[in-house]
Structure formats: structure tokens, C-alpha cells
Design a protein around this nucleic acid. Structure first.
Lengths: 256, 256
DNA sequence: GATAGTCCCTGACGCTACGTGAGGGTCAAT
DNA sequence: ATTGACCCTCACGTAGCGTCAGGGACTATC
């Protein structure tokens, strides 16, 4: 069996020599044996263990834990792999989401001066529009409120399927809540929860990461903080802006 | 405009208070203003900058660089976003690959005692088979050589499409190289490069990360180090094992 | 066998991005 | 005025190495 020196192992595996030293020091990966010259010599087994280590490291598992896992007497590979798989999948999804998000943002920035005819937000007066959009793009470029407060540009940059889905979500929630308002339900009435739950899930989706209750409450604030949101919501039904924001907050509080 | 305290910002953004302190200290994110009580107060702008920071942080960009990027006078959002998008996409792909890899490994472990009739590796004698498989699963469980030396179990766990693709790749390369051997081409003759190039790309694919020349050379060694690989290759054409391994090494050397 | 070049070793300090108290003001409400 | 939940500033600790510094070891060549 061929024995490998640190540099050879390093090149093969892609880690640094220092890393091998480090792993030796903390007892995570010991060389197969050490020469009387104190050189470290690695064999196949060590290479394989190193691969396992690197695989785990990919998942952000601390080195100590990796050692524990690999050295556990009843180390259940299957179990471990399933866990890894799950974690990896989540990461991959998150990344994919972020990519889609960025795509939309890019499209919105590119089309900044292009399309001018969508009308998702009719409630906004034409002259305030410019200011509003500049504000959105400048300030929120690429993030949370930007995605929630989809301007018409951003909206136009979506695929048809996405537009449909988006409109349905928004429409469902808004109409449902407006109905609640008309029927005199108190703000945040539990019977409105399903709607808000779906809304929050949707925000999480758009956002690319979970939207905790606190953030959801913050979002409610944001809705009330900008006059154009208010305009939009008041157009649906008088008093709706406050009703919506209030409902979101009550809901968020119940979940906090 | 509402001002937010550290804790509020922390909850909204999901970072810790300490992180905010830290970002303040290194000048990455300063509060909108500080009260005479020394409290930090943040506004909308700061929230947005924080979001940008976190977005960049996701990509593993060091904080210092993030600051530089965000503060660059001609900070081209579009350019930056495109870069981010690319990086994210690569990461996502890598993760997806790793997931697929793990899936195969899981399938192979699960079906350990199940299917027994595939014949990708006919060259292996039946009694050595058990030992060989135990060796593969035990040692290589979930990593590089495991994926290259696909056992029949692993092979069976693939989708039909994947099987086809895999067989074609392997077959193409092996037949092409065998042809080279028959025609008396020297080991590593440049005319074989396209085949080896594809093979290396394929290994990278299966491996979930690039396979540098050094690793490819190591792989060549591995092929020669296990008698069963030799058996498999010798069955194709006498002397083919060494020819293959040698060609891989020469190729790798040229690329190093 | 002397010299050069390349590898190896062992400290040991530095770095990033915070976590985690310690010790002590502040604010809002009771 | 006291409680409880906030806020502050040091300041040291941690992980996972990077990066010299100082000094042997191995290989090859003259």
C-alpha cells in the first residue's frame, strides 16, 4: 500500500497542509503512522476518513461533532446520511430561492425605464409613482419590503405563472380580510388566521427564508408606514389598511 | 419615522444584538443616530443596508469586502447582483449534486442485501464480491471512490435515465481507449484527450466538485491499486488496466 | 561530500465573526 | 422607589485555520 505525505494528501483532497496538521492536533484525523523523522504518513483509510470529514464539513458541522459522529461506536451511516441529505436539501432550496429573488430584482432594475403600463398598484397616483419607485428601487433594492411591495416593474418581470399565483395570493387574502371587515369581525379574529397564515408563508417564500412573527409584525408596521400602501388598501374598503395591519399584528402576537 | 432599538432590529432581521454591536464597531452598519444615553437607534435605511449585508454574507463574502462593496461610490447594483446570482447558482448546484450523491449512497446501503443480479462489474468473482462490496460500502461509504467504483447496488439505485447516461460515458471512454490501445497509440496520446476530458468532467459531476489534475492522477492510482478494477479492465483488453491508468496520469500531468 | 532545493516538523501568533459573561447605566411601569 | 427588561462598554473566549519563524530531512547534482 502506498503511503502518502501531507502534501500529497493535501493535493488529492484539496485541503491545506495546515489543515491536516490541525486535524491531527485535534485528533480528528491521525496519520496512519509517523516515521522516526516525525513525518506524517497517510494510507487509504485515512484518505477515506478525510473524505467523510469533508462531506460533513460541507454541512457546517463543527469538527468536534464530526469526530464524535465518525467515532461513535454505533455510528449509523444511514441515519447520518439521511440527516445530511435533509440539511443539504434545505440549503439548496434556500439558495435556489435566493437566486430567483435576485433574478426578479435584476429584471426590475433592468426594466427600470422600460415598461410602464402594469397596474397591480392602481391606488398610487401617477406623479407619486416616480418618487415611489425610485424609493423602492433605491432603498429596498433586493430585499424584503421590495419583494412584498412589488412595484409594477417587478411585477412585470415575473413569469405569467408567477403573476397568476401572486395575484391569487394577494387577492385571496385581501378579499378575505375585506370580507371580514365588512362582516364586522374584530381585527385579528381567529377565523382570519388561515388567510394570514398563507400570507405569511407566501412572504417566507418570496423572502427566501422563514418570516418569524416578529418580522411579520414589522411588516404590518411597514404597510402602515408608507402612504401608498395605505392608499392601495383604503381603495379596497375604507379602513382596510388599519384593519389589515392590525390583523397581521394580532396574528403575529398570537404566534410569538 | 419609527426608530428601532438593537433588539428590535435583531428580531426583525434575525441577527443577534452582539452582531449589531460588532457591525457598528467595524463600521459596517452604523445606527442612524445615538441617543445621549448611548443607545443605538436604527431607521429604515439601516434596516435596508443590513439586508444587503446579510444577502452578501450569505455568499460568504467577508464583512470587510461587503462594506467596501456597499460603500463603493460607483457601486453597480446590477453588476453586483449578477455576480451574486452566479455564485449562488454554483452553490445551489453543488448542493444539489451532493444531495443526489447521498441519495445514491443511501439507496445502496438500503438495498445492501436486496438486489443481487446486476452485472456492471462482471469481472468480479462471486465470492470476492461480498468482500468487495463490504469493502466499498464500509470504506468508501459516501465518497469519491465509492461513486467512481459504482457497485452493482449503487448502480441499481440509479434512475433508468441515469443508468443509460452512466453506461454511455463509461462505455465510450473505455471503448475509445481500448481502441487506442489496439491501434498501438502510446499511453496518454493526445488524441485520447477528449475522452479523458469527458471522463474527468464526469467524475467532477459525480463527485460534486471539480476534480483537479492531481486528484485525477490519484484516481488513476486507485484504479491500479485494487485488483478488482484491474480484473475489470483486463477483461476488456489485455494490458488495458495499465494503459488506462497510465493514460489518465499522462493526461493529468499535462494539465497540472 | 558539499550544496541546493524541496519537502517535513513544531511552535506560536494572527485573523474573522462573532458568543458570552461582567459590571454597570436607563427606561417604563407600578 | 423599586422592579424588570432593556441598553451600554470592555474584554476575554472560540473555531478553523493562515502565516511566518526557526530548524531538521530527503533528493539530486556537481
Amino acid at each position: 500500500m502506498k503511503t502518502l505525505t501531507v502534501k500529497e494528501v493535501a493535493k488529492l483532497s484539496g485541503v491545506s497542509v495546515r489543515t491536516l496538521h490541525h486535524y491531527d492536533q485535534i485528533g480528528l484525523l491521525r496519520p496512519a503512522f509517523t516515521g522516526q523523522n516525525r513525518y506524517r504518513y497517510y494510507g487509504q483509510e485515512e484518505l477515506l476518513r478525510l473524505q467523510q470529514i469533508l462531506l460533513h464539513r460541507e454541512l457546517g458541522i463543527p469538527l468536534g461533532e464530526i469526530g464524535a459522529i465518525l467515532d461513535a461506536p454505533g455510528f449509523d451511516r444511514l441515519q447520518a446520511l439521511r440527516l445530511q441529505r435533509e440539511r443539504l436539501n434545505e440549503e439548496a432550496k434556500r439558495y435556489a430561492q435566493l437566486v430567483r429573488t435576485i433574478d426578479r430584482t435584476i429584471a426590475s432594475l433592468e426594466g427600470d425605464r422600460a415598461m410602464r403600463n402594469a397596474d397591480l398598484y392602481k391606488g398610487i397616483s401617477p406623479d407619486k409613482q416616480a418618487e415611489y419607485e425610485a424609493w423602492l428601487v433605491e432603498q429596498y433594492g433586493g430585499d424584503m419590503p421590495e419583494r412584498i411591495a412589488l412595484s409594477k416593474h417587478k411585477y412585470e418581470s415575473l413569469s405569467e405563472a408567477e403573476k397568476l399565483e401572486l395575484n391569487q395570493e394577494l387577492h385571496d387574502m385581501e378579499q378575505g380580510l375585506a370580507e371580514g371587515l365588512r362582516r364586522g369581525l374584530p381585527m385579528g379574529s381567529p377565523s382570519l388566521d388561515p388567510l394570514l397564515e398563507r400570507h405569511r408563508a407566501w412572504v417566507s417564500q418570496m423572502w427566501g427564508r422563514p418570516c418569524p412573527p416578529e418580522a411579520y409584525a414589522g411588516l404590518a408596521d411597514l404597510y402602515l408606514s408608507h402612504p401608498d400602501f395605505i392608499a392601495r388598501y383604503e381603495a379596497i374598503e375604507p379602513g382596510f389598511a388599519e384593519y389589515l395591519s392590525g390583523s397581521m399584528k394580532v396574528y403575529a402576537n398570537r404566534r410569538a
